[in-house]
Design a protein around this nucleic acid. Structure first.
Lengths: 173, 173
DNA sequence: CGATTCATGTAACGGGTTACATGATTCG
DNA sequence: CGAATCATGTAACCCGTTACATGAATCG
């Protein structure tokens, strides 16, 4: 599972605790990965149970104690195993958003254009935030690939809009 | 939710029953959408409960009875509402598979190349099946967009491989 | 002194999958 | 007669989210 891989990968760079890991992810990957606190804490807890991680409490000043996590040798092994599995595997991500495009004929043409324009503007916002997180970023190669994907969708949507304006909605199914 | 939209959209074209809907999806969208039987039956059941659909039993020959489903006016309304929502919304799909690319430095260079080559071959298989389902297909515009996405990833991965061969693994994080 | 940050989590729910259960019908 | 097709579903589980709970420390 990729999220465990991610957490283990971060811990490989140095011991850390849940809160700090989440901080790193927010900055590091931006929109790239969505991983919420409850999920992260649960995954870490699981990996502790399974012996992939060890922990000790650390009191810095009078703050609430941190649970510092470290990779165990077992965890290190699992990391490389999972890494090999993930690297050699590919799956086309699901483009659920495209489902709606199958039914353009169900709405008046002008409405379709308006709605697609809204969709376009969302894309452009996302593109902007992606661009920001790319600047001077370690993982910029991966993020650049994402940028290319969103630009592909943008071009596709723009094409759809102009086609619809010219030739009307194409009926599917 | 896009899957309900999809089922409603299919039912808009004519009354049908669960099994038949699943058949249409298998042929129609190929790899495009993954929707398993239990999910489909549950979604249909929910929409029946909510009055978006009505049903009647139909005994064809001596086969097990079919539950024929029809859109109600309520269902028709929900369909267009959801369609508008989905059309005007965009979200970048999550590329979880890219997580592994953040940690290429953790493996020997030759291994990374081998693993990425495997990944490439999976991409090419997926591309092939996509190409097949595009031929003479109603939803070919959307499928073509998907094809472009997979070709983008292919090119990216090929680029990675040649870079690694030339310059070694780029360290992240 | 109120808001934000640091730091931990739990509870409840949503959405989806795999594997299992059932049983008649038709095809080879 | 055995396998595939037609047709319905349930049970158990996995993965993930939102919203909530707690509480000290620091900042403005």
């Amino acid at each position: 599972m990729e999220r465990k891989l991610l957490l283990l990968g971060l811990l490989r760079a140095g011991d850390s605790h849940g809160y700090h890991l989440m901080e790193m992810l927010d900055k590091h990957t931006g929109t790239f990965i969505e991983l919420t606190k409850p999920t992260a804490y649960r995954l870490l807890e699981e990996m502790l149970q399974d012996g992939w991680l060890s922990s000790h409490e650390e009191k810095a000043g009078r703050r609430p104690a941190r649970r510092i996590l470290s990779l165990t040798p077992e965890g290190e092994k699992r990391f490389t195993d999972m890494l090999r599995d993930c690297l050699s595997y590919y799956k086309l991500p699901e483009f659920r958003q495209d489902i709606a495009l199958l039914f353009l004929g169900a709405l008046p043409q002008e409405d379709v254009v308006d709605l697609l324009v809204k969709r376009l503007s969302m894309m452009k916002k996302i593109r902007q935030t992606l661009l920001k997180s790319i600047n001077g970023h370690a993982a910029s190669s991966v993020l650049n690939n994402q940028l290319n994907h969103i630009e592909l969708d943008t071009a596709y949507t723009e094409g759809l809009i102009t086609t619809i304006k010219k030739e009307g909605v194409i009926e599917h199914g």
